[in-house]
Design a protein around this nucleic acid. Structure first.
Lengths: 153, 153
DNA sequence: TATTGTTATACTCTATAACTATA
DNA sequence: TATAGTTATAGAGTATAACAATA
């Protein structure tokens, strides 16, 4: 199937394709833990930002409050994270539970192995360069929440 | 929100984030045409592979026959593409219609402008290097169809 | 038997809108 | 008024499983 120069030269198209193949492999790597890549990312963000609230988590994941809730619900049902009282009575503070700490090590290992496998055609310098270029596109900080959820109810 | 080294160092994670921001911009660029990025890609593939069948189109897009059908249905409803008799009585041959040719030029222009806008932080050399590295990850040819649809019924 | 198109159905992910409690 | 969480509902996108026609 001929992709044509209009597609081949689009960085967005190549990113979409790379995302497809890498996402599929990461999903397979996480299948034994019954977690999607997005839920794994949420778990890691909670571990690295203990006490964060759901809105901040959603902002980091570029999903709105409602979607963040569903993620946290599942992680909580699995006994991986916990909602505690937050800084005021409206907010939850999220924490990784011991069971989450036990499992997250193996998850990280599996995902990093997947990442290495999918980029094995790249030299170490190329992989490092790719990280730098990708971070330039997405910026170092997550997308603003205002585009996903204005908070206007 | 602290991303942590376990996430920051994952190429798959950075690709996911870049895909998110670039996909959103491309979607906005295509909004005046009421087409998603995937449907635009399908349209371009049909233009550049006149007479291709739906299964081949799906393979190039990494979706199965059923999903490819829905894409073609919408493009056909819009009067952009046409199903003609294929090489045997089972297959459809897909062709871009004059109305599709009229519209596709402006679509390509909009998407390329979006692509340039989202990568304006990159030098020309960096953009070229990024294309090369991304193609190394996804390979030059689309993912095998056998993983999306075995054809076993 | 295998393949193409097709249809019906279901699942995942995410958004929108509204509500409650709190600030 | 504004914000955090919550809930119900809806939409997009895709997969699975089956079927008919054809190879």
């Amino acid at each position: 199937m001929n992709q044509g120069t209009d597609l081949r030269g689009l960085i967005g198209y190549q990113i979409q394709r790379a995302h497809l193949v890498m996402g599929a492999d990461a999903r397979a790597a996480l299948a034994p833990f019954d977690l999607s890549p997005a839920k794994f990312t949420a778990l890691l963000l909670i571990r690295d930002n203990p006490g964060c609230d759901q809105t901040a988590l959603g902002r980091a994941l570029s999903v709105n409050r409602s979607s963040a809730m569903k993620l946290v619900n599942i992680l909580e049902e699995r006994g991986l994270v916990e909602r505690r009282a937050g800084r005021d009575l409206r907010t939850n503070a999220l924490f990784l539970l011991p069971e989450g700490e036990v499992q997250i090590g193996a998850m990280i290992e599996a995902v990093h192995q997947s990442d290495a496998r999918m980029t094995q055609g790249l030299s170490r310098q190329e992989a490092e360069q790719l990280l730098v270029l990708l971070r330039k596109i997405s910026g170092e900080e997550p997308m603003s929440d205002s585009e996903a959820d204005t908070g206007i109810a």
